[in-house]
Nucleic acid binder design. Structure first.
Lengths: 249, 249
DNA sequence: TCTAATACTTGATATAAATCAATTAATACG
DNA sequence: CGTATTAATTGATTTATATCAAGTATTAGA
């Protein structure tokens, strides 16, 4: 275990994602105890499944690096994308009630995760009340996130959806301390279309327009925001405001 | 307190909603301890707010009778409806992270709720691990519910959305032991339109069609399902299958 | 019970985005 | 490194649902 930790340079205490992951608000001793139950394995390769619908639920997963796509299929076999999860985000909490995964989680890029066996996490939560609060907090943010997505789907047109999507990714990278005006996004335009309830053709046309208008360029997995103000305006963000206040970032 | 309980005939132990509310899986002693922290007040009247966006979060609310609409407003002031909550459902969990309500909750009819002060519930949860599991389970169902709503918004046409909405209400009433082919629904057609991402005109037209085709009639707050099979088929429910397996019902 | 306000209905028309179709570009892999 | 596969683009056309408009029905309040 110590070897593994060393190999992935990975204790919670040293992790740059502390502030947006589980350990938020834990003291050193508590963090060490959390660390003891965290398992770290070899990274997933692109297109590898973290879990699949039907798998029994045993653990939550905190993302250390990479991107995870969470999705399912409609009755008619169409893919439904529920979200893209970045470093510091936690996936798997939706399976807590059913004890079986109802969704699929796939790495879109080389992705490493911390595995938190849920039974052990539950036991520890009883001893560290603040940890329990953390788990509840992560779940409540996920609920709020879902409602923001519904708002996007019911109230925004195609341009606004795409602007909001790109801007929310920028904010999420910013909150993690990365560059937010230029970043790599290993998400297919097709997947963005699915997530936003649009077709790939529509996404392509709107990205072409945003590129021509020098608002934002997204080519070959690289996003360049050229006009932050215009992008935010399109996304419907009030100047000075942020999605972050209610968003899982 | 005893007086109040008597007045509303309301202890968890005697409550018909046990199986779909908090107490699921608690033994008699545990249920009594839960009962001790539950507060019951006079019912809300139609259009009265249970809480509003900006209110500080102190309690969860379990619905005993009536309907609660949870909603917010977009930047442009349009109402966004996130859900309708029935007896046995729990509202307020979305505020757990922010400690401030981000959404509004309004009674659509005379509605009575059980108030669960969250600090006391948290303390009790540490002593009754199964109660903690219950809270987590309720939240995870809420996440799944949100994703089903997103599926509806991205993959279903107007007819399917309305059929699915009516059928899901029928299932929820059925799971509570009420009549499910004929029931009172005190939800405005306009609110259903908002919830489903449609206009009132579209809802009106489709309800007229479903009435003519003798599938389902919804007039003056009364729903009559005349052709269950056709309704389920429209909603995209496989025969023998149910939304309930993954839905908060 | 009457009246005002709100909710719902129905028809005509407009429109945003889907669909269909045909290239071109990028990526993966032998 | 070249080829096969998959993804993205761009244009022409269709379509589901929104919008606009003008009614009728229902509900709430004096």
């Amino acid at each position: 275990m110590t070897d593994v930790k060393t190999a992935f340079n990975a204790s919670c205490l040293n992790c740059g994602l502390q502030k947006i992951c589980f350990p938020t608000g834990l003291n050193k001793n508590e963090m060490d105890r959390l660390d003891d139950i965290v398992q770290r394995k070899a990274p997933l390769i692109k297109n590898q499944m973290l879990f699949s619908s039907g798998d029994s639920f045993t653990s939550l997963f905190a993302i250390r690096a990479g991107v995870i796509k969470v999705f399912s299929f409609s009755d008619s076999g169409e893919e439904i994308i529920h979200g893209f999860y970045l470093p510091g985000d936690v996936v798997g909490i939706d399976a807590l009630s059913s004890k079986t995964h109802l969704f699929n989680a796939m790495a879109l890029d080389a992705t490493s995760v911390c595995t938190l066996p849920f039974d052990e996490l539950s036991d520890l939560s009883l001893k560290i009340p603040h940890l329990n609060t953390q788990v509840l907090s992560i779940m409540s943010k996920e609920v709020v996130e879902g409602r923001l997505h519904s708002e996007l789907l019911t109230k925004k047109n195609a341009d606004q959806r795409i602007a909001q999507f790109i801007w929310s990714m920028a904010e999420r990278y910013q909150s993690r301390g990365y560059h937010y005006l230029e970043f790599r996004l290993s998400i297919l335009h097709r997947d963005v279309a699915t997530y936003l309830g649009l077709t790939p053709e529509t996404v392509s046309r709107i990205l072409a327009k945003l590129h021509n208008e020098k608002v934002v360029t997204w080519k070959k997995k690289e996003v360049h925001i050229q006009n932050e103000r215009a992008l935010k305006a399109l996304a419907g963000i009030q100047e000075g405001d942020s999605l972050a206040c209610i968003k899982v970032i």
